[in-house]
C-alpha cells in the first residue's frame, strides 16, 4: 500500500516526511522563540519562558539543521524541479547559508550577554535572518 510499496521513491518519500516533520518542530521553536524572546526583551519583562527559550535556541537551531537531510531527500524525489529552482533563485538561495550562520552566532550572543541592548540587537538580527530563510 502506498507509500510503503518498498520501491525506492516511496522509501525516499517516507524518509522525506519524517525528516521534514522533525525539521518543522525544531525550526518552529527557533523562529517563533526568537520572536517571543525579542518581544519580552523589548518589554523588559522578566519572563522564565523567554529565558528558557533563549537558552535553548542555539541548540534548537543546531537540531533544526536536520532540514539539510530533508532537502537532500527532496532533491532525490524532485530532481529537475529542485535543481532548476535553486539555479533560478541563484545567489539569493546561496545567501541562506550565511544568513543561518549569522543567526546562529546572534543566538549565542543573545544567550551569553547580560546587556539588554546587545540582547535586543542580537535577537532582532537573528529574527531577520531566520525570516529571510523562511521566505526564501
Amino acid at each position: 500500500m502506498w507509500p510503503f510499496t518498498g520501491t525506492a521513491p516511496a522509501a525516499w518519500l517516507v524518509l522525506y516526511l519524517v525528516t521534514f516533520a522533525l525539521h518543522v518542530v525544531f525550526i518552529s521553536y527557533v523562529l517563533a522563540g526568537t520572536g517571543y524572546a525579542l518581544v519580552q526583551a523589548l518589554r523588559r519583562k522578566d519572563d522564565p519562558i523567554a529565558d528558557r527559550a533563549r537558552d535553548l535556541l542555539p541548540f534548537m537551531l543546531a537540531s533544526g539543521s536536520r532540514g539539510r537531510r530533508a532537502a537532500a531527500v527532496l532533491q532525490l524525489l524532485y530532481q529537475r524541479q529542485f535543481y532548476t529552482a535553486n539555479l533560478l533563485l541563484g545567489p539569493r538561495w546561496g545567501a541562506v547559508v550565511p544568513a543561518l550562520i549569522v543567526g546562529f552566532y546572534a543566538l549565542y550572543l543573545a544567550k551569553a550577554t547580560t546587556v539588554i541592548r546587545w540582547r535586543r540587537l542580537a535577537l532582532a538580527i537573528a529574527l531577520v535572518c531566520f525570516t529571510f530563510v523562511a521566505w526564501s
Binding site: 518543522v24 518552529s28 521553536y29 517563533a32 522564565p48 519562558i49 528558557r52
Partner: peptide, 24 residues
Amino acid sequence: LGAMASLFATLAAWWAAPEDRAAS
C-alpha cells in the same frame, strides 16, 4: 509563521513549570 507560533507556544507551555507559566 502562524503554525510556528502555535507549535512554539505548545512546546514552551509543555516544558514550563506551572509557576513559570503564571509568571509569563
